[in-house]
Design a protein around this nucleic acid. Structure first.
Lengths: 344, 344
DNA sequence: CCTACTTTTGAAAGCCCTTCCATAGAACTC
DNA sequence: GAGTTCTATGGAAGGGCTTTCAAAAGTAGG
């Protein structure tokens, strides 16, 4: 059927061990033999059988990524970084889209099947506690991206720092009545961004009505969605409070919903309300959003590098890197040019 | 180290054959034995080793998808359909992002490594001719999505039909001077959409200046990008021709660039220029684009179903399904409500 | 030219499973 | 109860590779 090392061995008049050694560039093979084997292998168009290799090597050269379902543009950009780095290394990537915490468990379980993958990248989702002990003890290579656990490597965004910069930017533009449209507080980034928002205002001596803050209670994507942004703003407007002159929105995708809601109420951005959001996904520039940029591609890249290191040094100390987001000023905050988006 | 069927066999006082039979729900095992084995397996927290299984079964329960790098929103949505269907079937998905035709070859090569995957989905990229003969002969399960080859299963969008509907829509709104901002003609969809656009105009007896048509010469994503749309429109405006009252744009993402270009020139949409585009990616509704909807999620779903069928019946006749896009009327064509997007 | 190493090589063992084959025992038949 | 047919079971073979081990061949030293 398909060509095996046995065929090559026979044809080249050598043993299978020698063939294997040649194919793996192991030491101690005469140039002559090496060339003979290579010639035959090429002639027969030999392709190593990945699973047999994996079985023998106890290494699969495959990673899995568990991500909160594709929907979110943030992950797509991180994944690009992951994918590109991986493919230069000859690794494959298995993608698992999870919609809820339970699925995370399922996939973790599946990935764990020994040998299936060499490691797993977990994105933005909490690591279920019941896996912690086992994974830590077995030293399962696990890298957390945009989420955290003290016992595993992680790559994070400095949400607190980012929210502070965003809030300070609004303050520096003179805004004193500021609101926040937030995602679901069950997500750590949402909590952290809110906390820093509050703290920054407080430190500046600015007090806002509690009603200025709207937390999403949506499950899907933890409320990091356009719909959630739309509803959040609508809910705020329904509260009958004086409309703040500025809003900090916990993600770009929500900000797009917020814009839609404001448009519907004929509230102009940035003339009536300034907006600063978070992420700087590709979308953001289409909407001229001022936002906190996360180096997503880089994060993906680094995640892979950490993973490889972890696989090679299972006993290295756990490390956590935190990327500081940078402010990208576009039109939605009013600092720059006229915003393009308003109703006339 | 990790638990194998031998451990279970020993502990349960049975042979490994019996263990395997129990685990695979094969016939002819006494209830008593079955239960004993299951109990032990559970007690030892047994996980089958995926690669050993794959090796023995000659089936990996894994598919690969080769896609023109993530960038494009179209694929993300199709992939959701793929992923969700796959995970209900217990299959895994390996993702390969390709940036050019050469990489397609590489990945095809890699996937082919016998046993690595049970089949491959190729998205929107041409199947390199040098693989055709070999794949057809070996009956490699290959499903083409949004691309075509007579010797393999495919799922397509009826680009011609879609372009016709879009053009007719603009004609029905009374437009007689219409332009088209197209992607790179090296892509089949771009060619097909253009051809139908021309033909529909001709059949309606409408003649337009050749200069009304701008084809992208960008490589990246075959010109299906925001930048390409922006530059396309700018190039048109630079030609000094009378500005048409309507444009057909070959994708939503380009249309966003087109909008940006028009905005910069203070040309209002839809008052001055009506826009109809193609795809209906999630983005489109954020920009209130009238567009040709492709059932992307469904396409992904169907792709997987076809693949499974193909794997199970390697000799079934090749089939090709074509999805007809539907017109989604939003504001950018002016048929509906006021467009929200104009400069005042 | 013989001994003592070193390098190269072939082949067996092992990775963990599924599947096939042979056997033992149970269940039936007459 | 002897003969026949089934069912349940154990275990070997096989899938394709890497790696270890021992033997063969080559090299160097005296």
């Amino acid at each position: 059927m398909s060509v095996t090392i046995y065929d090559i061995a026979r044809e080249a008049n050598v043993g299978i061990g020698t063939v294997s050694r040649v194919l793996n560039n192991s030491a101690n093979v005469t140039t002559e033999t090496r060339e003979r084997v290579i010639t035959v292998a090429r002639k027969l168009n030999y392709q190593p059988h990945a699973f047999a290799q994996a079985l023998a090597r106890k290494r699969s050269n495959t990673l899995s990524a568990i991500i909160p379902f594709f929907t979110n543009y943030f992950f797509i950009e991180v994944l690009q970084g992951v994918q590109e780095t991986l493919s230069t290394l000859g690794y494959d990537l298995i993608i698992h889209g999870a919609n809820n915490q339970q699925q995370v468990g399922e996939y973790l379980q599946r990935s764990m099947r020994k040998g299936r993958v060499d490691g797993t990248l977990l994105f933005s989702l909490e690591l279920p506690e019941n896996f912690v002990a086992e994974f830590a003890q077995k030293k399962v290579p696990l890298v957390l991206v945009d989420t955290f656990h003290p016992q595993f490597d992680s790559i994070r965004v400095d949400n607190a720092g980012g929210a502070t910069i965003a809030t300070e930017h609004l303050l520096s533009l003179g805004h004193r009545n500021i609101g926040m449209i937030n995602a679901n507080l069950q997500s750590a980034p949402a909590r952290e961004r809110l906390a820093s928002f509050r703290q920054t205002l407080q430190q500046a001596g600015v007090t806002i009505p509690e009603g200025n803050i709207v937390n999403s209670d949506e499950q899907k994507n933890d409320g990091f969605s356009r719909e959630s942004g739309f509803r959040g703003m609508m809910e705020f407007l329904g509260r009958g409070l004086p409309v703040p002159t500025a809003f900090f929105v916990s993600s770009d995708i929500q900000a797009i919903g917020v814009l839609a809601a404001l448009r519907e109420r004929n509230i102009r951005v940035p003339e009536d309300v300034a907006i600063v959001s978070f992420d700087d996904v590709e979308l953001a520039k289409n909407f001229d959003l001022t936002t906190m940029r996360q180096p997503m591609f880089k994060m993906g890249e680094l995640a892979v590098k950490k993973m490889i290191e972890r696989i090679e040094h299972p006993d290295a100390p756990v490390s956590s890197v935190s990327f500081k987001p940078g402010l990208v000023i576009r039109a939605s905050c009013g600092a720059n040019k006229q915003y393009v988006f308003h109703e006339q």
